[in-house]
Simulated assay, not measured.
Amino acid sequence: AAEVCQRLGGVVVLNGDGLDTEILEEANVGTAETMIAVTDDDEVNILSSILAKRLGAERVVTLINKPSYEPLVTNLGIDAVVNPRSITVSHILQHVRRGRIRRVHTLREGFGEIIEAEAMATSALVGRPLREIDLPEGIIVGAIVRGATVITPRGSSVIKADDRVVLMATTGAVRKVEKMFAVRLEYF
């Protein structure tokens, strides 16, 4: 704690049990906009987050390494869960996926992926209303991002070149998404 205080400078560092309400109150967690629990103990992170929320913290973010805990914490009032394994898998997939894939987030239990991809001028998605596009089964377009504008897709929505498209794809449909956003030879 002394080393952290020395390195950060101008920061108050409290050293104590994150499950001790006196420590949390001393840290003014009840007036905190966000409390982040990132110890190496999942149970302490979960319980201290619940305590912080009960003491009045507006939002709590909890580090959880055991994937089996994630479904449990959503019902406990925890606002966000950070799982290093999921982050690592998503980051790797972002580089492994073919096409103009910008971000990938895996869904629990191998259900599928949330994919953000850039629409190229040669993509079959560009220039036609969504209702006229025969999307493969297992793919749902969730949003179209054009510049700073987020568009909720409707049947009449038209994807333009350079739009970012956020979609959900089941595991079996991921390769089809890659093909939809791949750069085709006629582009060059």
Score class of each variant (00 low, 15 high):
residue 132 E to G: 01
residue 132 E to N: 13
residue 126 V to C: 05
residue 126 V to S: 06
residue 87 I to C: 09
residue 137 E to Y: 02
residue 113 E to W: 00
residue 120 M to P: 08
residue 88 T to Y: 14
residue 109 E to S: 12
residue 123 S to L: 06
residue 123 S to W: 06
residue 93 L to C: 08
residue 107 L to W: 02
residue 120 M to E: 10
residue 117 A to R: 03
residue 132 E to I: 06
residue 104 V to E: 07
residue 81 V to N: 03
residue 131 R to Q: 12
residue 118 E to H: 06
residue 93 L to T: 03
residue 98 R to T: 13
residue 92 I to C: 09
residue 96 V to R: 05
residue 111 F to Y: 11
residue 126 V to D: 00
residue 116 E to G: 07
residue 112 G to F: 01
residue 91 H to T: 15
residue 102 R to I: 15
residue 137 E to V: 07
residue 135 L to W: 12
residue 109 E to M: 10
residue 86 S to R: 14
residue 83 N to F: 03
residue 136 P to S: 04
residue 118 E to V: 15
residue 97 R to S: 15
residue 114 I to C: 00
residue 135 L to I: 09
residue 113 E to R: 00
residue 137 E to N: 05
residue 126 V to F: 09
residue 113 E to D: 01
residue 79 D to H: 02
residue 112 G to L: 02
residue 98 R to E: 15
residue 112 G to T: 04
residue 126 V to M: 04
residue 122 T to K: 05
residue 118 E to P: 03
residue 114 I to T: 02
residue 117 A to G: 11
residue 125 L to G: 08
residue 118 E to F: 10
residue 82 V to R: 02
residue 100 R to Q: 15
residue 96 V to H: 07
residue 107 L to H: 00
residue 110 G to H: 05
residue 127 G to A: 05
residue 100 R to W: 11
residue 122 T to P: 01
residue 130 L to F: 09
residue 110 G to Y: 00
residue 86 S to L: 13
residue 108 R to F: 11
residue 98 R to M: 14
residue 117 A to M: 07
residue 111 F to I: 12
residue 133 I to N: 07
residue 93 L to I: 00
residue 137 E to T: 10
residue 135 L to R: 02
residue 82 V to S: 04
residue 110 G to T: 04
residue 79 D to T: 01
residue 116 E to W: 00
residue 91 H to F: 15
residue 84 P to Q: 04
residue 97 R to N: 14
residue 81 V to C: 07
residue 113 E to Y: 00
residue 126 V to N: 03
residue 99 G to S: 02
residue 106 T to Q: 08
residue 133 I to K: 03
residue 84 P to I: 08
residue 125 L to C: 02
residue 112 G to W: 01
residue 86 S to F: 14
residue 135 L to Y: 09
residue 89 V to I: 15
residue 84 P to M: 05
residue 84 P to N: 09
residue 126 V to W: 07
residue 136 P to C: 06
residue 80 A to R: 10
residue 92 I to A: 15
residue 81 V to T: 06
residue 134 D to W: 09
residue 82 V to A: 10
residue 133 I to E: 04
residue 134 D to I: 07
residue 117 A to S: 11
residue 131 R to L: 11
residue 104 V to H: 06
residue 134 D to G: 10
residue 116 E to H: 03
residue 131 R to I: 14
residue 101 I to F: 08
